[in-house]
């Protein structure tokens, strides 16, 4: 697999978190299962109500459906599986977070399932740390940083690393 990067178009790389010069980062936070995740606010294009999904036969399990988002065919990914959570039916608060990613040299829209979307918050680099090597049940490469916020721990997922195995089509 060739080098992957997630960027906002200004060329920032994914694996390193692009804290601004005050060591802060604006993110959108959302819940999925028991975890709270954060995605750079600059990547988020839109938050929409769940759309009717069309299953793509033989597609990788991580992205096995597509939706019609304003006339564009947008694949939908569920971060539950990579973070070792069991699939769950949508709730009244479920949403689709539409993000714009640059994978290889292609920009694409991707819908991320979310159980509940919170707000845009500013995270501080000072209260963040790398994922510990023990005590977490997920693949370490999938997490860029863990950020403490009050009593919660917010996960900054590495979308490029998570999506890489699903690129190029068939499988799973």
């Amino acid at each position: 697999m060739s080098a992957l990067s997630v960027s906002t178009g200004s060329g920032q790389s994914s694996t390193a978190v692009a804290w601004n010069r005050h060591g802060e980062l604006e993110v959108l936070t959302f819940d999925l299962g028991s975890e709270r995740f954060a995605i750079e606010a600059t990547l988020v294009r839109e938050i929409v109500e769940p759309l009717p999904e069309t299953r793509v036969p033989c597609a990788p399990a991580l992205v096995d459906t597509v939706v019609n988002h304003r006339g564009r065919i947008v694949p939908v990914a569920d971060l539950r599986a990579p973070f070792a959570m069991v699939a769950a039916p949508p709730t009244a608060e479920s949403c689709l977070v539409v993000v714009e990613l640059a994978l290889d040299d292609e920009t694409l829209l991707l819908g991320l399932r979310a159980d509940r979307v919170h707000e845009v918050v500013t995270l501080a680099e000072a209260s963040s740390e790398d994922a510990p090597s023990v005590g977490v049940r997920w693949h370490r490469a999938f997490v860029r940083r863990l950020v403490r916020s009050g009593d919660d721990v917010i996960v900054l997922p590495d979308l490029a690393a998570i999506l890489a195995p699903a690129l190029g089509g068939a499988g799973a």
Binding site: A59, V63, N68, I73, G168
Partner: peptide, 18 residues
Amino acid sequence: KALSPFHRGIGSFSGATV
């Protein structure tokens, strides 16, 4: 419409439509 890179390699589909 073209398929995303996640679905291009499956082989049975040449695209999608709304």
